[in-house]
Design a protein around this nucleic acid. Structure first.
Lengths: 337, 337
DNA sequence: GCAAAAATGTAGAACGCTACACGTAGAACA
DNA sequence: TGTTCTACGTGTAGCGTTCTACATTTTTGC
């Protein structure tokens, strides 16, 4: 059946390079890996042949013995532009290395992670993983691992890179309080309990309490589904005890909040102030003007990659990097007199 | 140096499965590939051992002889939520297959494509590639290839999946005309000339001419950079000969247009109507209410994947799939009396 | 000028699979 | 009964690298 497709141009192999350069295969391999014991003369000769023949080592073959020089990134979804920031950071960290990043997308990292391990990724970066430490440790036992957005550090055999989500929650609330808001609700995530969300909720709670507004704590949770979020927001905004501000766990939700509020004829920030999280590019648009907590996705991506490569290179103790979030104030939460 | 990280749990190999099941390695391999010549009894025995040992074939090793069951997707960027739709289509096509998709992101596909070929992807889907047919054919000679968003079919040795971008451009203009707009500008892409953009521009031109408005053809081109787009939009909207509608080559640009127009105190659609392309989720939000041309990203992704797998399975003639776009009308281009 | 050490290069055995080439046994056919 | 098929298993040679030994040459130290 499935006859091999027509005459694919065959690849140049290390053997051909070796023979062209008049050296052994081992020598070429050494040059490739800049291993010890190569004279400048030999290196030059081999380089010349590689360039001439346009040789590229085959990752599968390398993987069978050593590294594939491939890192796997696991994103929970592709719709949130925040992940583009993280990705930019990863790329800039990879710039002068021989590593390449390959992405996968999956809400439940599980099967994708296995697929990546099957494909000999040298290391994995999991972004916002909904996994227990036990499960993550299990993965970390098989491949170098860094998690971005995971706050349970107990007994972690992997690295983490986080922004201080609790502080982020606090900052959002503090900012809203400073601008005169008293009834601050939080729109949080329902379905998969994540340590990130927990921390943001905790920050929200603590700050509200410290501001003497502990009585008005009001967390509503919605799944990621557009329709559901709309419904819940509508209920929140139409209820008789309407809040005067909403802190949304991500910009995407905040945009939805703006949408629903606008639709209900409420004006922002006079009737309802809104604060998001991530400070994505869309916040800047005049139709949104969304105040947001910036967690420097680019830094997160960069640091995660740095840590991962360190791990691949042999570090065995865990490191945990934390970024301090900051408020980027825009009209959606401006002071109302 | 770089001592191998601490005691990674070693992988189960085909040999161990074979010995556990009491059969030859070749037999296990046959089961794995459901090759010809396996009795039900043997298959069952092997399956049992594989399950028991939790065996997973190593893609690198497979790749050295046969397939890796990995498809590579190349996205031009990650910020545009439209690509999430395409991805959803790819995933649904992959559902009941043994293939896995890995994504990469790169404006100039070139080096990423090489990296993917190095990594033995069984086939590639290039989304909105900025490459000549010559270059694409060169790739296609080395790996099964499908391009999404590429209109030059001449002598193409790869498959393509497109929406009819020329019709899309026509539809946008026709819709605006029907709603009473006369001076319709088009915001197009500057830097990388792409066949997609060309077609949309052509559709814009042709339709405008047919509507008897050929004299008002006005195409302004901006690069993908946010700042530049703003500048150019501002110039367009502040000029003395302001258009009464803008057709933007992608929703993202349209959102920017909404932003700039709003900032300038113009109201939409009264002062300026706006139409986008892609019909991304954000169009629906009340702060945007953006009329957009829907090109069914999900269908594009699904068909591309289907074609790619056919190619991998041996088809050697090219196929070209076309989706018909449609207008999704919203407030941003409503009729003004 | 000589031994020891350092530098440079090579052979060749893996790595975990696939797939070709066979071997064997029972069924079908004449 | 002998011959030819067909179905089912197995042995094993690679695939393109890496990397450990080891051999050879050059440099260093005195």
């Amino acid at each position: 059946m499935t006859n091999k497709s027509p005459a694919r141009t065959p690849r140049i192999t290390i053997r051909e390079v070796a023979s062209d350069a008049g050296v052994s295969v081992a020598a070429v391999s050494k040059v490739l890996r800049d291993a010890y014991g190569v004279s400048d003369a030999l290196r030059a000769k081999v380089q010349a042949s590689m360039d001439k023949l346009n040789y590229r080592p085959l990752a599968s073959a390398r993987g069978l013995r050593g590294r594939t020089y491939t890192l796997g990134l696991v994103f929970p979804d592709l719709r949130n532009p925040f992940f583009a920031d993280i990705f930019a950071g990863v790329n800039s960290a990879l710039e002068r290395t021989r590593y390449q990043a390959m992405q996968g997308v999956s809400v439940s990292a599980s099967s994708l992670v296995e697929a990546m391990i099957d494909r000999q990724m040298d290391g994995l970066v999991l972004i916002g993983p909904n996994e227990t430490n036990e499960r993550l440790n299990d993965i970390a036992d098989r491949v170098p691992l860094v998690a971005i957005g995971h706050h349970d550090l107990e007994d972690a055999r992997f690295d983490t890179v986080n922004n201080d989500d609790q502080l982020g929650g606090r900052l959002a609330v503090r900012h809203l309080c400073q601008n005169g808001h008293k009834k601050i609700a939080m729109l949080s995530l329902a379905a998969p309990v994540s340590t990130v969300i927990n921390q943001r909720e905790l920050g929200y709670r603590l700050e509200l309490t410290e501001q003497g507004l502990g009585g008005s704590i009001n967390i509503v949770r919605a799944p990621q589904v557009l329709r559901e979020v709309q419904l819940i927001l509508r209920r929140l905004l139409e209820g008789k005890d309407r809040p005067d501000a909403i802190f949304c766990w991500t910009d995407l939700m905040a945009f939805e909040a703006i949408s629903v509020a606008t639709e209900l004829g409420l004006s922002i920030p006079e009737d309802i102030a809104i604060v998001g999280y991530d400070n994505t590019v869309f916040c800047e648009f005049s139709q949104n003007r969304l105040t947001s907590i910036d967690q420097s996705g680019e830094v997160l991506g960069l640091q995660a990659t740095r840590l991962l490569i360190e791990r691949i290179d042999g570090r065995s103790h865990s490191e945990h990097f934390v970024v301090t979030p900051r408020v980027v104030a825009r009209a959606s939460s401006a002071k109302v007199s």
